[in-house]
């Protein structure tokens, strides 16, 4: 494994011009081993949390208390994650490289999705949606103004006529 475990391919960061996009797509290449180690490491940590939390729970008279199942699942999660990491390291050559295309847009999209609920809670659905939908549309890859307007209109119409009026959902 070289020091360039994670390499950023920056051919064509300018994918905004809409020409020959499929050729100029930025790609983040991460070795499969690294992906496995990161995710299984995280899952192993979650497993440890459930194991410790489960063991710390006060049981009742019954043989299986509230903490029994969390402790068992936590322990299993740790063991299986460790096994996967072990296998990944041993057989690293065989794991394919994981390619993340348009990585910056992807991360931006995730951030937007995660922020959306809190923003809705704070400012109300419609004010947020009017801004959020076109911004998200841009991030996803809509480049024509008509497309952005259409997507926003569809979403707002659905929210207004279907959810709010037909189904009586009081949107925040």
């Amino acid at each position: 494994m070289s020091s360039r475990d994670v390499e950023m391919d920056d051919r064509g960061m300018d994918d905004d011009d809409g020409l020959a996009k499929s050729i100029h797509t930025p790609v983040l290449r991460v070795p499969g081993v690294a992906v496995d180690m990161a995710i299984c490491g995280l899952l192993g940590a979650i497993g440890l949390w459930f194991l410790i939390g489960g063991l710390g729970m006060k049981g009742g008279k019954a043989a299986i208390g509230p903490g029994t199942v969390p402790a068992i699942t936590g322990g299993c999660l740790m063991a299986l994650s460790a096994l996967q990491i072990g296998l990944a390291v041993l057989r690293r050559a065989r794991l394919p490289v994981v390619e993340f295309q348009r990585p910056l847009w992807l991360v931006l999209g995730m951030v937007l999705i995660i922020l959306f609920p809190s923003a809705v809670d704070e400012f109300g659905y419609f004010p947020v949606a009017v801004i959020w939908v076109p911004v998200f549309g841009w991030v996803v890859g809509i480049r024509s103004p008509v497309g952005l307007v259409v997507a926003t209109a569809i979403v707002l119409a659905l929210a207004k006529f279907v959810f709010e009026m037909l189904l009586g959902t009081p949107l925040p």
Binding site: I113, V120, V140, G141, G147, A151, V155, F163
Partner: peptide
């Protein structure tokens, strides 16, 4: 329908649906 538009609308419906 162009995929980015589908993705935008689907994401918004996911949010509306889970709220509703």
């Amino acid at each position: 329908i162009p995929r980015p538009i589908v993705a935008t609308v689907v994401a918004s419906i996911c949010m509306l649906g889970s709220y509703a």
